[in-house]
Amino acid sequence: MSIAWTAFTPGSALAGGALIGLAASVLWLVNGRVAGISGILGGLRWRPGDRGWRLAFVAGLLAAPAVLGWVAPGIGEFAPAGQGSAEVIRLFVAGLLVGIGTRLANGCTSGHGVCGLARLSPRSLAAVAVFMGTAFAVVFIARHLIGVGL
């Protein structure tokens, strides 16, 4: 392992993380809800009586790039469009696994990784250990054993 010092952005990582924690605190203290994105999205279908605040939260997520671009232009990087059908299929399959996996596990990087760990939940600790471990393994296999770029 070698640390990529030029890519490492500790200040903005901590600041952005603190904003995520602030958002989770707002949703908890105002709505009494856990800021877990997969749970919020899943509930749009499975909790039909409960759509209003979920849609409002998703609207906030979707509006974030425009609002930030207006307040502080130039911040934020996004991926270029995928090139070719293989790329699109990879992204779609990855999305399916993310959706099915987080549905089964009742949480993702936000619900388990931020909110669950903040609650010191043993389930969330187990979830984070497993999804980080498998993600590390997938990237290792792809980049260093098979040699595809990802």
């Binding site: 997520l61 979707l62 974030a64 993310v98 596990a105 388990h112 999804f131």
Partner: peptide, 30 residues
């Protein structure tokens, strides 16, 4: 929980997107 988290981790590693950033990126028109 463990199987779900493993599937999620595979998907996350394949693309680098977890649910929140994916939705935000759609909002950015990515």
């Amino acid at each position: 929980l463990l199987v779900g988290s493993a599937l999620f981790g595979i998907g996350w590693g394949l693309a680098g997107y977890c649910p929140g950033p994916a939705v935000v990126a759609v909002g950015a028109g990515s």
